[in-house]
Nucleic acid binder design. Structure first.
Lengths: 116, 116
DNA sequence: AGTATACATGCGCAACTATGCAAATATATA
DNA sequence: TATATATTTGCATAGTTGCGCATGTATACT
Protein backbone atom coordinates (compact mmCIF):
# COMPACT_ATOMS: atom_id res chain seq x y z
CA UNK A 1 0.00 0.00 0.00
CA UNK A 2 2.50 2.60 -1.14
CA UNK A 3 1.32 6.20 -1.00
CA UNK A 4 2.95 7.39 -4.22
CA UNK A 5 1.98 10.95 -3.35
CA UNK A 6 4.68 12.40 -5.54
CA UNK A 7 5.34 15.36 -3.27
CA UNK A 8 8.85 15.25 -1.79
CA UNK A 9 7.85 16.94 1.48
CA UNK A 10 4.97 14.53 2.05
CA UNK A 11 7.22 11.60 1.23
CA UNK A 12 9.88 12.70 3.66
CA UNK A 13 7.29 13.07 6.41
CA UNK A 14 5.87 9.64 5.62
CA UNK A 15 9.35 8.17 5.62
CA UNK A 16 10.45 9.77 8.89
CA UNK A 17 7.34 8.44 10.60
CA UNK A 18 8.31 4.93 9.55
CA UNK A 19 11.99 5.23 10.40
CA UNK A 20 11.61 4.45 14.09
CA UNK A 21 14.95 4.06 15.83
CA UNK A 22 13.34 1.86 18.49
CA UNK A 23 12.69 -0.98 16.04
CA UNK A 24 16.24 -1.04 14.70
CA UNK A 25 17.58 -0.57 18.21
CA UNK A 26 15.70 -3.73 19.16
CA UNK A 27 17.09 -5.68 16.20
CA UNK A 28 20.69 -4.49 16.33
CA UNK A 29 21.86 -7.04 18.88
CA UNK A 30 22.97 -10.53 17.69
CA UNK A 31 21.39 -12.26 20.66
CA UNK A 32 18.08 -10.55 20.01
CA UNK A 33 18.30 -11.51 16.33
CA UNK A 34 18.83 -15.14 17.37
CA UNK A 35 15.74 -14.86 19.53
CA UNK A 36 13.73 -13.37 16.67
CA UNK A 37 14.86 -16.14 14.31
CA UNK A 38 14.09 -18.79 16.89
CA UNK A 39 10.66 -17.33 17.63
CA UNK A 40 9.88 -17.06 13.92
CA UNK A 41 11.06 -20.59 13.14
CA UNK A 42 9.12 -22.09 16.02
CA UNK A 43 5.80 -20.98 14.59
CA UNK A 44 4.39 -20.61 18.10
CA UNK A 45 4.89 -18.80 21.39
CA UNK A 46 7.93 -19.73 23.50
CA UNK A 47 8.63 -19.43 27.20
CA UNK A 48 11.72 -17.60 28.42
CA UNK A 49 13.32 -20.93 29.27
CA UNK A 50 12.62 -22.32 25.79
CA UNK A 51 13.85 -19.15 24.12
CA UNK A 52 17.04 -19.25 26.19
CA UNK A 53 18.11 -22.45 24.46
CA UNK A 54 18.95 -20.64 21.23
CA UNK A 55 21.60 -18.34 22.64
CA UNK A 56 24.38 -19.05 25.06
CA UNK A 57 23.62 -16.48 27.71
CA UNK A 58 22.02 -16.59 31.15
CA UNK A 59 18.23 -16.71 31.11
CA UNK A 60 18.00 -13.45 33.04
CA UNK A 61 19.61 -11.73 30.09
CA UNK A 62 17.14 -13.41 27.75
CA UNK A 63 14.30 -12.16 29.91
CA UNK A 64 15.61 -8.61 29.52
CA UNK A 65 16.08 -9.02 25.76
CA UNK A 66 12.53 -10.29 25.35
CA UNK A 67 11.17 -7.39 27.40
CA UNK A 68 13.02 -5.00 25.09
CA UNK A 69 11.65 -6.72 21.98
CA UNK A 70 8.19 -6.40 23.50
CA UNK A 71 8.61 -2.65 24.11
CA UNK A 72 9.61 -2.29 20.45
CA UNK A 73 6.50 -4.18 19.33
CA UNK A 74 8.45 -7.09 17.85
CA UNK A 75 6.90 -9.65 20.18
CA UNK A 76 3.76 -9.95 22.27
CA UNK A 77 3.73 -11.49 25.75
CA UNK A 78 1.05 -13.36 27.63
CA UNK A 79 1.25 -14.89 31.06
CA UNK A 80 0.03 -18.42 31.63
CA UNK A 81 0.44 -19.41 35.26
CA UNK A 82 4.09 -18.93 36.10
CA UNK A 83 5.17 -19.05 32.49
CA UNK A 84 5.51 -16.13 30.13
CA UNK A 85 4.67 -16.85 26.51
CA UNK A 86 6.46 -14.70 23.97
CA UNK A 87 5.15 -14.72 20.43
CA UNK A 88 6.63 -12.85 17.49
CA UNK A 89 4.34 -10.22 15.92
CA UNK A 90 5.04 -11.59 12.49
CA UNK A 91 2.38 -9.72 10.53
CA UNK A 92 3.10 -6.33 12.06
CA UNK A 93 6.84 -6.81 11.66
CA UNK A 94 6.61 -7.88 8.03
CA UNK A 95 4.30 -5.05 7.05
CA UNK A 96 6.44 -2.51 8.88
CA UNK A 97 9.46 -3.67 6.88
CA UNK A 98 7.55 -3.61 3.58
CA UNK A 99 6.05 -0.22 4.36
CA UNK A 100 9.51 1.10 5.03
CA UNK A 101 10.81 -0.26 1.73
CA UNK A 102 7.90 1.38 -0.11
CA UNK A 103 8.37 4.71 1.69
CA UNK A 104 12.09 4.75 0.92
CA UNK A 105 11.50 4.16 -2.78
CA UNK A 106 8.63 6.66 -2.99
CA UNK A 107 10.75 9.27 -1.30
CA UNK A 108 13.69 8.66 -3.58
CA UNK A 109 11.52 8.81 -6.71
CA UNK A 110 9.87 12.04 -5.56
CA UNK A 111 13.27 13.53 -4.78
CA UNK A 112 14.62 12.51 -8.17
CA UNK A 113 11.74 14.17 -9.96
CA UNK A 114 12.05 17.33 -7.86
CA UNK A 115 15.80 17.66 -8.41
CA UNK A 116 15.56 16.98 -12.15
CA UNK B 1 11.26 -13.51 -4.44
CA UNK B 2 10.14 -15.59 -1.47
CA UNK B 3 11.54 -19.08 -1.32
CA UNK B 4 8.49 -20.83 0.16
CA UNK B 5 10.57 -23.97 0.66
CA UNK B 6 8.24 -25.24 3.32
CA UNK B 7 11.03 -26.88 5.30
CA UNK B 8 11.48 -25.26 8.73
CA UNK B 9 15.23 -25.87 8.85
CA UNK B 10 15.79 -24.36 5.41
CA UNK B 11 13.62 -21.40 6.35
CA UNK B 12 15.52 -20.76 9.54
CA UNK B 13 18.81 -20.85 7.64
CA UNK B 14 17.43 -18.46 5.02
CA UNK B 15 16.14 -16.17 7.74
CA UNK B 16 19.35 -16.14 9.76
CA UNK B 17 21.31 -15.22 6.65
CA UNK B 18 19.10 -12.18 6.18
CA UNK B 19 19.03 -11.11 9.82
CA UNK B 20 22.32 -9.23 9.69
CA UNK B 21 22.96 -7.30 12.89
CA UNK B 22 25.17 -4.87 10.96
CA UNK B 23 22.23 -3.41 9.01
CA UNK B 24 20.10 -2.81 12.10
CA UNK B 25 23.17 -1.58 13.95
CA UNK B 26 23.55 1.01 11.22
CA UNK B 27 19.92 2.09 11.42
CA UNK B 28 19.49 2.12 15.19
CA UNK B 29 20.78 5.65 15.72
CA UNK B 30 18.40 8.64 15.31
CA UNK B 31 21.05 10.78 13.63
CA UNK B 32 21.79 8.06 11.11
CA UNK B 33 18.06 7.67 10.45
CA UNK B 34 17.85 11.41 9.77
CA UNK B 35 20.71 11.04 7.33
CA UNK B 36 18.98 8.11 5.60
CA UNK B 37 15.73 10.08 5.33
CA UNK B 38 17.59 13.12 4.03
CA UNK B 39 19.53 11.09 1.50
CA UNK B 40 16.37 9.31 0.36
CA UNK B 41 14.36 12.52 0.06
CA UNK B 42 17.09 14.31 -1.85
CA UNK B 43 16.91 11.86 -4.73
CA UNK B 44 20.60 12.34 -5.41
CA UNK B 45 24.06 12.03 -3.83
CA UNK B 46 24.98 14.46 -1.06
CA UNK B 47 28.33 15.70 0.21
CA UNK B 48 29.19 15.39 3.89
CA UNK B 49 28.63 19.13 4.29
CA UNK B 50 25.20 18.94 2.68
CA UNK B 51 24.25 15.89 4.70
CA UNK B 52 25.34 17.64 7.90
CA UNK B 53 22.56 20.20 7.49
CA UNK B 54 19.86 17.71 8.46
CA UNK B 55 21.19 16.97 11.91
CA UNK B 56 22.54 19.31 14.53
CA UNK B 57 25.91 17.70 15.17
CA UNK B 58 29.49 18.48 14.18
CA UNK B 59 30.35 17.41 10.63
CA UNK B 60 33.09 15.09 11.91
CA UNK B 61 30.39 13.04 13.55
CA UNK B 62 28.40 13.02 10.32
CA UNK B 63 31.48 11.80 8.47
CA UNK B 64 31.73 8.89 10.90
CA UNK B 65 28.03 8.11 10.63
CA UNK B 66 28.21 8.06 6.84
CA UNK B 67 31.26 5.79 6.94
CA UNK B 68 29.34 3.41 9.16
CA UNK B 69 26.32 3.46 6.82
CA UNK B 70 28.70 2.69 3.97
CA UNK B 71 30.20 -0.30 5.77
CA UNK B 72 26.67 -1.61 6.31
CA UNK B 73 25.87 -1.23 2.61
CA UNK B 74 23.19 1.41 3.16
CA UNK B 75 25.02 4.05 1.15
CA UNK B 76 27.66 4.13 -1.57
CA UNK B 77 30.45 6.69 -1.64
CA UNK B 78 32.36 8.25 -4.52
CA UNK B 79 35.07 10.85 -4.36
CA UNK B 80 34.93 13.84 -6.68
CA UNK B 81 37.90 16.07 -6.13
CA UNK B 82 37.87 16.99 -2.48
CA UNK B 83 34.20 16.19 -2.07
CA UNK B 84 32.74 12.88 -1.03
CA UNK B 85 29.41 12.01 -2.61
CA UNK B 86 27.22 9.74 -0.54
CA UNK B 87 24.25 8.14 -2.28
CA UNK B 88 21.69 5.87 -0.65
CA UNK B 89 21.55 2.33 -2.05
CA UNK B 90 17.81 2.54 -2.36
CA UNK B 91 17.22 -0.58 -4.42
CA UNK B 92 19.41 -2.83 -2.32
CA UNK B 93 17.98 -1.46 0.90
CA UNK B 94 14.37 -1.85 -0.19
CA UNK B 95 14.86 -5.39 -1.44
CA UNK B 96 16.75 -6.37 1.69
CA UNK B 97 13.82 -5.18 3.81
CA UNK B 98 11.26 -6.95 1.61
CA UNK B 99 13.35 -10.13 1.54
CA UNK B 100 13.49 -10.05 5.30
CA UNK B 101 9.72 -9.64 5.56
CA UNK B 102 9.24 -12.61 3.20
CA UNK B 103 11.75 -14.77 5.07
CA UNK B 104 10.12 -14.01 8.41
CA UNK B 105 6.69 -14.98 7.15
CA UNK B 106 7.94 -18.10 5.34
CA UNK B 107 9.74 -19.19 8.47
CA UNK B 108 6.72 -18.63 10.64
CA UNK B 109 4.41 -20.50 8.26
CA UNK B 110 6.82 -23.43 8.01
CA UNK B 111 7.13 -23.52 11.79
CA UNK B 112 3.36 -23.43 12.22
CA UNK B 113 2.91 -26.36 9.87
CA UNK B 114 5.68 -28.34 11.56
CA UNK B 115 4.35 -27.76 15.07
CA UNK B 116 0.73 -28.52 14.09
C1' DA C 1 54.85 27.67 -2.70
C1' DG C 2 51.19 29.15 0.29
C1' DT C 3 46.38 29.26 1.52
C1' DA C 4 41.70 27.57 1.61
C1' DT C 5 38.29 23.88 1.41
C1' DA C 6 36.37 19.15 2.24
C1' DC C 7 36.74 15.32 4.64
C1' DA C 8 38.74 11.66 7.77
C1' DT C 9 40.78 10.22 12.12
C1' DG C 10 43.05 10.03 16.94
C1' DC C 11 41.85 11.21 21.51
C1' DG C 12 39.43 11.66 25.76
C1' DC C 13 35.05 11.92 28.06
C1' DA C 14 30.36 10.98 29.23
C1' DA C 15 26.55 8.08 28.54
C1' DC C 16 24.72 3.82 27.44
C1' DT C 17 24.41 -1.53 27.12
C1' DA C 18 24.94 -6.26 28.00
C1' DT C 19 26.18 -9.59 31.23
C1' DG C 20 26.12 -12.82 35.41
C1' DC C 21 24.94 -13.36 39.97
C1' DA C 22 21.94 -12.94 43.70
C1' DA C 23 17.64 -11.69 45.56
C1' DA C 24 12.70 -10.81 44.92
C1' DT C 25 8.13 -12.03 43.07
C1' DA C 26 4.61 -14.98 41.50
C1' DT C 27 2.59 -19.29 40.79
C1' DA C 28 2.23 -24.29 41.11
C1' DT C 29 2.64 -28.57 43.80
C1' DA C 30 3.22 -31.67 47.83
C1' DT D 1 2.37 -24.34 54.98
C1' DA D 2 6.51 -25.55 52.91
C1' DT D 3 8.96 -26.28 48.61
C1' DA D 4 9.89 -26.17 43.80
C1' DT D 5 9.58 -23.73 39.36
C1' DA D 6 9.43 -19.63 36.11
C1' DT D 7 10.47 -15.18 35.52
C1' DT D 8 11.81 -10.46 36.71
C1' DT D 9 14.77 -7.05 38.80
C1' DG D 10 18.77 -4.72 41.60
C1' DC D 11 23.52 -4.41 41.40
C1' DA D 12 28.37 -4.20 39.98
C1' DT D 13 31.33 -4.59 36.12
C1' DA D 14 33.14 -4.65 31.58
C1' DG D 15 32.65 -3.19 27.11
C1' DT D 16 30.69 -0.16 23.51
C1' DT D 17 29.05 4.20 21.37
C1' DG D 18 28.50 8.98 20.25
C1' DC D 19 30.33 13.39 20.75
C1' DG D 20 33.40 17.68 20.01
C1' DC D 21 37.87 19.22 19.40
C1' DA D 22 42.18 19.21 17.36
C1' DT D 23 45.01 17.35 13.90
C1' DG D 24 46.09 15.11 9.53
C1' DT D 25 45.41 14.35 4.52
C1' DA D 26 43.95 15.28 -0.06
C1' DT D 27 42.54 18.47 -3.48
C1' DA D 28 41.71 23.15 -5.38
C1' DC D 29 42.86 27.93 -5.95
C1' DT D 30 45.98 32.16 -6.22
Amino acid sequence: MATRSGLPAACQTALSERLEAELFQALCDPIRLSLVAHLAASGRALTVTEASQCCGIHFSGVSRHLALLKRAGVVRAEKYGREMHYRIEIGALASTLRGLADALEDCWDAGRRASA
